[in-house]
Structure formats: structure tokens, C-alpha cells
Design a protein around this nucleic acid. Structure first.
Length: 453
RNA sequence: GGCCCUAUCGUCUAACGGUUAGGACAUCAGCUUUUCAAGCUGGUAAUCCGGGUUCGAUUCCCGGUAGGGUCACCA
């Protein structure tokens, strides 16, 4: 055992909204750093803003962390339950002369006077070491005598963070870059109450595609949005970890355990990174591959619409189309849409117009063909399939059909076969489809096509 | 605007003074016995600009430019 003091980190969101993707990454980096170094993480709800803080947001944040697999060792603590603590410090500061009560006009323009507590700014330069950015220096003069409490029982953010970080023994403050300019005034307060200075590190921001702040108008920003779209938590974690950090190797797909093993603050990026949904989807797909068949199936069912789940063919078809879904899905949310469109034909007869049975010119290889000509072709197809004995599988079907397709033109025959089964311009190949449908249903669909012409 | 931070392919990034500037996503082309998906192969694509320091700068220093953060009785 080393005699280094135990590392204690913190994740202190304010319950004024959902868990933003940027804050989730901050939580993740804190978590990885803490686990990697055998420390403990404090979870603290900074709810001193009574107007905006809501219990429901607390619940959402807690649930979001749980879903992501980010755990903490202490908390949740609520600042609203610690008013007495802050009051003690406030009184001590006022007695010591490092803070003072200042009468001023109320903010609400009622004309009334009230008393706020201001910090007596020593107006000096503060220099601190940031683990990611190196030495940073601020002149605090411009901060003036900033307000640290609305009243003796109503403390504000800068005071509560400093007091809490001190009392909870926080050794490392790892947070977003948006807090870097808050750091000097917090250091000032620390010095005024003789609290030790924690080690700081400020992570770069997550940006939208236009390099502006990543916010609601750029689409999904809350962790639950991604959950609801059918992303896997391990994929979101993986992607977030790689946004602003890299292992120095070429590995890109990580489990949480692997991330903990690899993580280090000195490989965290200094500059902001654009959130790229396309890459997230790719990572999600990679993690979907890692799922067992059983896990994959359960997730698909979760996202399938009710009417499909209630359809007569559901339990028969589901296991057969699962392998197709594995190749095509990059999020589970996509099955909801697919079930109504490109995969609907598995559960009910396809709807299409007959002329589309004729393949596009490109596949025709210059053959002059009319729709009429398809009638005997489809008839012949039927005749070829009819005598097939079990197993009615891809291999046997292909064997039966192939020579004829070669003879008449592969594009022509195979497109028609595929199209009458799926009614889709784009779909899996006809042999796969025929196997999935089985002989009887395949023949029935070919028949339907013949009748349509 | 003041203060602070940042700057390598379209995007995420590697290269911690010497590389044909590497990888991944995306994109393009070809191959995979019709289409799609998946897969395989190959291609296009970057050191913001200007000064230094150095035998040699993506890398170190300075200036510019651009982007971001922050300037509350929010956190």
C-alpha cells in the first residue's frame, strides 16, 4: 500500500434538467479516474437554486447514471439539506472580516432593500495548476466583491462548492471547461476559510457540428434521449470516452472495465470535440455485435411496435429475421420504423404495383422485356420450387432456381422473385427470403404476383 | 468588449525536434455469382497564417487569425 492520501472525486450536478451528454462525460471521466486509482467518488446534488431545482430531475439524473453504469461511493448529498453547515462558515467569515453583509436593493425591482453577503476580494492574482492545461493565471480584481449568499440562510454556489469540497475531503476537482473561470474565485474562498486546494483538471467542451455549444436545438442532448433511441449504454460510454480522450493505441471498442484500465488524465484532449452521431452509431453497432442472441432478441422486442408483436406470424417470423436485423441495425430504435416499412412484408402481404416486378434497366443487361413476359417466368419459378422436398433452405432453393436464372437472365428472374416476396426495391436476397417464408408462403406470394400481372 | 482556453484529413484522433504525417468514422471506386445490408480491397483527404529558435519544426517561443468558455442575488 502506498501512503498517498486516498483520492476523492466528485460529480455535482444541479437538478435543473436532464443529464446532458456533456455532463455525462464529465461523470464518466471522474468515474474512470476514480476507479483506476482506487479512490472514491462523491455524488452531490447542488440544489441551492430553489426555483429551478426539481425532484424529478434528481431522479432522472440518478437513473441516467445507473443506466450508464456509472456508480458512486458516497451520496447523494443535497446542498439544500446542509444549509446549517454553510451558515456556520458564513458567520465565521463575516466575523473574520473576509465577508460582509451588504444592504442592496432587491433584484425584483420592488424597491425594497435586503441584505446579501459579499466576499471581501483581496484583489490578487491566482495561479493554479490544471492537470490538462498546465498553469493558469487569473487576476481576480475584476471579480469585485462577489456575492456568496442571498442571505445568511441562503448560500450561493461558489460558497457551497468550496465548503462541500473541503468537508467531503475532495482531492481532485475534475469538471468541464465552463468552470475554469470559476476556479479563481473558489480558490479565493478556500484561502479565506483555510481549506486546502484540491487538484484541478478541466475537460474540453463537447460541441455541435457547427462548433457551437451542444444544446437541444442540435438534437438529442440528454442521456435518456439516446437510451430511448435504442443506443446501448456501453456504446454511449465507449463513444463518450473517446470524445476528448484516447488510449494512445488503435483500439476503439472498449468495455467499461477496459476503459478503467486504460484511462489517464494526461491523454485527455485540450480542445473541444464535435459530437458525431454517425460515429456513435458505428460504435453502437460494434457493441450490438457483442450481444448474445438472447440479449439481441430482447432488445428488438423492446422496440418493436405492439401491432407487430400481436400479429399472428410474430413468434414464427421473429427468430428468422433476427439475423437480418443484426446486419442492418445500428440502433434498436430503427426496428420501430423498419417494422412499419422495409420489414413489414415479413408479417403481412407486401403491397406493390405489378410493373415493379420488372427489374430496373440496369439489371436487365439490355434485354427487351415486357411485364407480360414475367408471367411465364414466375410460373416456371413456381414449378421449380414446388417439387422441392425438405429442407426448404437457401442452398436447395438456389440450386433449383439458378440454372433457370442463368438462362433467362439473372437480373430478370431473381429480381422478380425477390420483389414478389418482399415488394421492396431493396431487401435481402430471394433465397434468404424464400427460406424464411417457407415453401407454402413463398409459392403463395409468387402466385399473388402472377395474378397481379 | 475584458479575462481565460484552444487550433493535424469533413469528424474523432496518433505522431511528446528527424515519419512517404499513422488509424478510425464518413466519402469515392472495385470485388463479393440481381437489389439492399454486411464483408473484402484500394483511393481522395490534414499540420490555420506570419515570424523566430534549430542542421532540422506538426512538435518549442512570439504575433496574428479563427473557434470556444466566462464575465448573475444560475450552477
Amino acid at each position: 500500500m502506498s501512503d498517498e492520501p486516498k483520492i476523492i472525486t466528485r460529480f455535482p450536478p444541479s437538478p435543473t434538467g436532464f443529464l446532458h451528454i456533456g455532463r455525462a462525460r464529465t461523470a464518466l471521466f471522474n468515474f474512470l479516474f476514480t476507479r483506476k486509482n482506487g479512490g472514491e467518488m462523491v455524488f452531490r446534488l447542488e440544489d441551492t437554486d430553489k426555483e429551478r431545482s426539481k425532484k424529478e430531475f434528481e431522479d432522472v439524473i440518478i437513473e441516467s447514471l445507473k443506466w450508464l453504469g456509472i456508480s458512486y461511493d458516497q451520496g447523494p448529498f443535497r446542498q439544500s439539506e446542509r444549509t446549517g453547515e454553510y451558515k456556520k462558515y458564513l458567520q465565521k467569515m463575516i466575523e473574520g472580516g473576509v465577508a460582509y453583509i451588504s444592504p442592496e436593493p432587491a433584484k425584483d425591482a420592488s424597491g425594497e432593500m435586503k441584505e446579501v453577503v459579499r466576499f471581501r476580494n483581496p484583489n490578487k492574482k491566482i495561479k493554479f495548476l490544471d492537470l490538462i492545461r498546465g498553469e493558469v493565471e487569473f487576476d481576480t480584481t475584476e471579480l469585485k466583491d462577489f456575492v456568496i449568499a442571498r442571505g445568511i440562510d441562503d448560500p450561493l454556489y461558489h460558497l457551497t462548492v468550496v465548503v462541500d469540497d473541503f468537508e467531503m475531503g475532495i482531492t481532485h476537482v475534475l469538471r468541464g471547461e465552463d468552470h475554469i473561470s470559476n476556479t479563481p474565485r473558489q480558490i479565493l474562498i478556500q484561502e479565506a476559510i483555510s481549506a486546502p486546494r484540491p487538484i484541478y483538471a478541466h475537460f474540453p467542451m463537447i460541441l455541435a457540428a457547427d462548433r457551437s455549444k451542444f444544446s437541444g436545438r442540435h438534437g438529442a442532448v440528454s442521456v435518456f434521449d439516446y437510451r430511448d433511441q435504442g443506443f446501448l449504454p456501453q456504446a454511449l460510454i465507449n463513444y463518450l470516452a473517446l470524445l476528448g480522450w484516447n488510449p494512445g493505441t488503435e483500439q476503439e471498442i472498449f468495455s467499461m472495465e477496459e476503459l478503467i484500465g486504460e484511462f489517464s488524465l494526461d491523454r485527455v484532449q485540450k480542445s473541444g470535440a464535435i459530437f458525431d452521431m454517425v460515429k456513435l452509431k458505428w460504435i453502437n453497432k460494434e457493441h450490438m455485435r457483442l450481444l448474445s442472441d438472447e440479449e439481441f432478441k430482447d432488445k428488438v422486442i423492446e422496440f418493436l411496435p405492439e401491432d407487430i408483436k400481436n400479429s399472428a406470424k410474430f413468434s414464427l417470423m421473429l427468430p428468422k429475421i433476427l439475423p437480418l436485423l443484426r446486419e442492418r441495425l445500428s440502433t434498436f430504435g430503427e426496428v420501430t420504423e423498419m417494422a412499419q416499412t422495409e420489414f413489414k412484408y415479413f408479417f403481412s402481404d407486401p403491397k406493390y404495383s405489378a410493373e415493379n416486378l420488372l427489374c430496373p434497366p440496369k439489371q436487365r443487361k439490355g434485354q427487351e422485356v415486357t411485364l407480360e413476359a414475367l408471367k411465364p417466368i414466375l410460373g416456371r419459378l413456381k414449378a421449380l420450387l414446388e417439387p422441392l422436398s425438405e429442407p426448404f433452405n437457401q442452398l436447395n432453393i438456389k440450386e433449383a432456381v439458378w440454372p433457370y436464372a442463368e438462362e433467362k437472365g439473372r437480373g430478370l428472374v431473381l429480381w422478380a422473385m425477390r420483389y414478389c416476396l418482399s415488394g421492396q426495391e431493396k431487401s435481402p436476397d430471394p433465397f434468404t427470403l424464400a427460406e424464411i417464408f417457407g415453401k407454402e408462403e413463398t409459392l403463395r406470394r409468387i402466385d399473388n404476383a402472377i395474378k397481379k400481372i
